[in-house]
Design a protein around this nucleic acid. Structure first.
Lengths: 334, 334
DNA sequence: GACCAGAAAAGAAACGTTTCTGCACCCCCT
DNA sequence: AGGGGGTGCAGAAACGTTTCTTTTCTGGTC
């Protein structure tokens, strides 16, 4: 029905009065052609609006020109992953790759049907069966943050120095007067969660502070976070600062504080490890760590593209800078 | 480098002792084969882990098996589009199509290099040059909400009855005691914005209420929304309810109200036309219209797939239900 | 016993590229 | 004058499918 007639390399060849070989070489820069032929062909190709058929090209080259972005199903709606996805699409486009979205899928064999050249794993979760399947299929993988699975052999990795970021945040809170900073964090099934907890523990040890951690799921209902916060705020050792790690979760802490008549930042400081629109717009705005998800996505896609092209060695790791964004919730904007 | 040897249809044929034709027919259900051969081939294919090469298949069939999702660059980070994107990916997967993300691109010719079978346009914006390019290229398009561009001929459309939703919201506010409801809305360059304004105007006329509209950009800084809200709240005819249409914007209204010592919902009701996590978590939670972006994305992808497959006529329109979610900001949860 | 119909399967072309190899031609050297 | 080495281009195979056409059987009918 929608058969728009495509102009092929043969059409260009006929129109330019040369062979298809010559057209291919002229447009790709290969072969041994005179400059005159090259421009002649280019002009004709342009005039005809010739666009190489990617399927044919990929069939011939043994690649699909497509990489996938995989993220766990449950993270749906987290701003962080949306931003990362857009960044990845941009990075892929820059290398003439298409970026296919793979929401956490039920049938893990399905992913193989796309013959993807590679995959980006955003925050791989320990124990995700999909990771095993990808390993079995020997799909080249770049991870955002580390993959904790034993035997994981990504061809590349993009990461943030989350431990340093956590230390910086803890220092900031201390500078703002906090002496008992508690942490609400998800489990250690992602390297991000693991590193934050480790850095928190180490920092507390160094500063002779008793660590207080409340566990919540990586993607949790706001009420769960609020509940965790209330446990802290009504406990024997009420903290004077709370870090709520997960994307969008700090709002729950604000609510809990309000419910108990505590004012932020006067009575308790609040901060988050993932910045987002909600934290910028809340009352008060919440101090957070900007982990630059868009750049993370771009870097991951570009790194994967480069490793696939062979211009970067397998196993390359790139580290992204994080920035502390002080806001009113820690009195940090003053 | 990552040359994992693929098993081809020829391998299956050799192993099963039949021709490639037979394998193809057996696996696709075509041809005239005995049931015995069919199962024999399937078993062998399964054992060998055969997965058809999509490039070869698409080359032969004249399609790429890939559809694109286009959304304006600036909407980055809006939860609505993330959710829609995931829904679209799910819907596409269900029809064995890949979903490629196309962030608002600079070089509009680039999109043609993917030879996409079709595109989903999420909230097409009037005047977007990309729309013209797609029309020129005769790419089959399904839009989420209407495309207001003159001459637009999408092969399908998924939409919500935004006018009805707006009327329902206005009725709700009236039931909660509001007599002067103001609207903060974006311009009419999307059909969504257009319909909301139209419905608001009509409703006001019918109820003999003087309409008050404040204009803000579709994607606006929270401060802009707060500023618009303040103009309303400090004006001569202070509204007793404010609808802030855009995704995530109602938070700005809450802030403005608080700044002026007005309590929500006691002094002023607040509602939004796009539900989101921020509205669920704010204090108070904000009444909103749930427009089911995930389903919207699913439907768009499936409709496009069906039109491309010819099982649905071009021009099909599907309408999604919207739901009013009353929350504390309008006293509606009581 | 030849013929035919239909079923079951094989053969071969085609999709649009890329790339390896081959073929002229020209210039230069001896 | 005949070879040798570039240069500029064309031919053809190959990538892995799908699909149109053809062949090979089998069994039944006159």
């Amino acid at each position: 029905m929608n058969q728009r007639p495509r102009v092929t390399i043969r059409d260009v060849a006929r129109e330019a009065g040369v062979s298809v070989t010559t057209v291919s070489d002229a447009l790709s820069g290969g072969g041994r052609l005179s400059e005159a032929t090259r421009v002649k062909v280019s002009v004709v190709a342009d005039r005809l609006g010739y666009i190489p058929n990617p399927s044919a090209r990929h069939l011939r080259k043994g690649r699909t020109g497509t990489i996938g972005l995989y993220f766990p199903d449950r993270v749906l709606g987290l701003e962080y992953y949306m931003t990362l996805a857009v960044g990845a699409a941009e990075g892929a486009l820059r290398h003439d790759l298409a970026l296919t979205l793979i929401p956490g899928w039920r049938d893990s064999r399905r992913v193989a049907s796309f013959h993807l050249d590679g995959m980006i794993l955003a925050d791989p979760v320990l124990g995700d069966p999909v990771l095993d399947e990808l390993r079995r299929q020997r799909v080249p993988v770049v991870t955002c943050e580390r993959d904790l699975s034993p035997g994981s052999q990504p061809v590349g990795r993009v990461e943030s120095d989350n431990e340093a970021a956590m230390r910086g945040l803890l220092d900031h809170l201390r500078d703002q007067g906090a002496r008992r900073t508690a942490l609400i964090a998800s489990d250690a099934t992602t390297s991000w969660g693991h590193d934050l907890r480790a850095a928190y523990g180490a920092w507390c040890g160094r500063h002779r502070v008793t660590p207080q951690i409340q566990d919540v799921p990586l993607v949790s209902h706001p009420d769960e976070v609020a509940h965790a916060a209330e446990i802290l705020l009504t406990g024997r050792r009420r903290p004077d600062a709370i870090i709520s790690a997960m994307d969008g979760s700090a709002i729950g802490v604000l609510q809990a504080a309000e419910r108990h008549g505590l004012r932020v930042p006067d009575d308790v400081l609040v901060a988050s490890c993932v910045d987002g629109a909600d934290l910028r717009q809340s009352t008060p705005p919440v101090t957070a760590i900007d982990i630059q998800p868009r750049v993370m996505g771009q870097w991951a896609a570009e790194l994967l593209a480069e490793v696939l092209a062979g211009t970067q060695p397998s196993g390359t790791v790139r580290t992204l800078e994080t920035h502390l964004v002080p806001r009113a919730s820690t009195g940090g904007d003053r």
